[in-house]
Design a protein around this nucleic acid. Sequence first.
DNA 1: CTTTAGAATGGGAACGCTCCCAATATCTGA
DNA 2: TCAGATATTGGGAGCGTTCCCATTCTAAAG
Lengths: 342, 342
Amino acid sequence: MQKWERSQKVADLSTIEEIAKEAGVSRSTVSRVINNDPNVNEQTRERVLEVVNSNNYVPNRAARKLAGGRTGVIGLVIPIGVSRLFVEPFFPILIQSVTNRCNQVNRSVMFWLGEPEYERRSITQILSNDLLDGVIVSSLKDQDPIVAALHHSQIPFVLIGRYRDLPVNFVDIDNEKCAQVAVNYLLQTGRKRIATITGVADTMVSRERLDGYRATLAKAGFAVDNNLIAEGGFVEEGGYAAMAKIFPHKPDAVFATNDAMAVGAIRFLREQGVRVPEDVGVVGFDDAPFAASYKPALTTIAQPIGELGRRAVDMLVNVIEQQPNDVMNEIFASDLIIRESA
Amino acid sequence: MQKWERSQKVADLSTIEEIAKEAGVSRSTVSRVINNDPNVNEQTRERVLEVVNSNNYVPNRAARKLAGGRTGVIGLVIPIGVSRLFVEPFFPILIQSVTNRCNQVNRSVMFWLGEPEYERRSITQILSNDLLDGVIVSSLKDQDPIVAALHHSQIPFVLIGRYRDLPVNFVDIDNEKCAQVAVNYLLQTGRKRIATITGVADTMVSRERLDGYRATLAKAGFAVDNNLIAEGGFVEEGGYAAMAKIFPHKPDAVFATNDAMAVGAIRFLREQGVRVPEDVGVVGFDDAPFAASYKPALTTIAQPIGELGRRAVDMLVNVIEQQPNDVMNEIFASDLIIRESA
DNA sequence: CTTTAGAATGGGAACGCTCCCAATATCTGA
DNA sequence: TCAGATATTGGGAGCGTTCCCATTCTAAAG
């Protein structure tokens, strides 16, 4: 009930003008204080701050926005369907890390999840949503029109995962390198017929991981057998189906480009009476929370998902506030976690 | 590229005043049209609408709010930590269904995910976030101060899951009844020592499921053995640990109050060489996406999660627009899905 | 043909903030 | 001691809406 009273008090002095009066200064001075303008006398600042805090004053975001300021609201757009959203741990972790960081830096998050497909309406809604200071977009398909639209608009934005066609701000991991590490490990452990299960076509991340797979195999002097490549759409069922397609071609290892598909693949193998890792080694990708406790525990590439989300927020805030001329990129390292499955 | 040009056009005529000029009417008339005021000549309305549409005009939400209108933004608050968020499929599905419905009814979603704990600051931030028309809250603990705060403020809100201490709007399932169905099924199949793994203490949902378990057992003439009750915190690890505690007391069945814990319990049982369902039957709760493909396929209670989310949105929109005097409640039915684990 | 109710429309004021410029207070050095 | 900076502060204007009241127009009634 105490908190209840506090929140009651919120309503008492709720405009900048009221705070100003209480503190014995002008509206402008209060504005300067809450916006960290250096041109304020230190004592005045303290006095104002005290009134602000004791009244639990929070500036009205709508008014602030209208007057040309910022709202402190960041948009998060993840254009994928339900099926992936709740199967891949990537997304909950990402969402969590983005929202947490936003809260830390005193921002709110507005959310758009995978519409079946962008229509003009959705994009318009996001872009012309005057409440947003900036936007974070993850898991794009190639040519997703939202990027061009965002790029053309003046709204600051950051991608999680890179984009080919335009110079944009992004954070990402080095997918090609990751694939290389995974495949090399498989090669080192003596595998000869290494398959791969790819994610979603039209996707940078899928393409890069596949490129890495191909390049590494080629470099090691192995021919790439297209029968050993199948698409799994990043979901467990897809991994199962892809494994079914690949299996007749006698792989002795599989690089599944995420853990959900690795699990699907293992499920298929198990049903065939194939032992993992003895007969076929499986490497996943993501280091999902279940990866360690799964039987067999998954050998997998650990993406710093939380770090990606946090950095995306920081980068976006930086773009919003500093308006730099150059685009910013940041590539994160990932590790191979060796466990039981390969 | 076409879409790009469209979004360019958005910027052209972007204020109500410009639209008014273009349509040859006043600001007020345009406002009436976009707010569906009946006092507008039909021809005028059409003309205005045409200009609005061809210019892809969207009213400025900040201005609208400031002038006393609505923003069309709904807050979604889910006060749980990461650990549950990405382990329980309940949340992604809920989030997805809420955001989708919001998009359908032309609303945006603003998001607060499980802070370690509410501080005054968080609540203030949510409540005094003048950008919100209303709030949906899910997965509360008892006495969560946000409910009292919300209740006291004038902000319309709807809970997903009921709340004991105050008359509030909510949607929910009948947890007690569900538990009854699950336990009765176990009894019917001849189980004699039925255990239960509860979720998070201080939680209506846990308490209700436990009450249902107790009542059903009592009604069937069985004594309730507290050794057969353990808390699992709604996570897989917790289910495993709870099963470890219960196991020495020779249960022949377990009602796990969600699927994640059911999986944890089965993992433990398997490690002990116990067969499921032959030696110990396991019933879960949620009908998680993995429940059907799990081995053994989970017998579980199917909650209409998507429906809960959608109805919560509809109810909230109704509250926002109609401002009814009475609180609204809606209880959804759930089904027992019989598969292999019991 | 005039009057009047009602339909349709227009425009001022206000919402709470930031930006900008002007005004005042304080300090510096010769 | 005084001009000229410099530090601090104050207040008007305006952001794009909605609400409310006033005004204009229309058509029916007398």
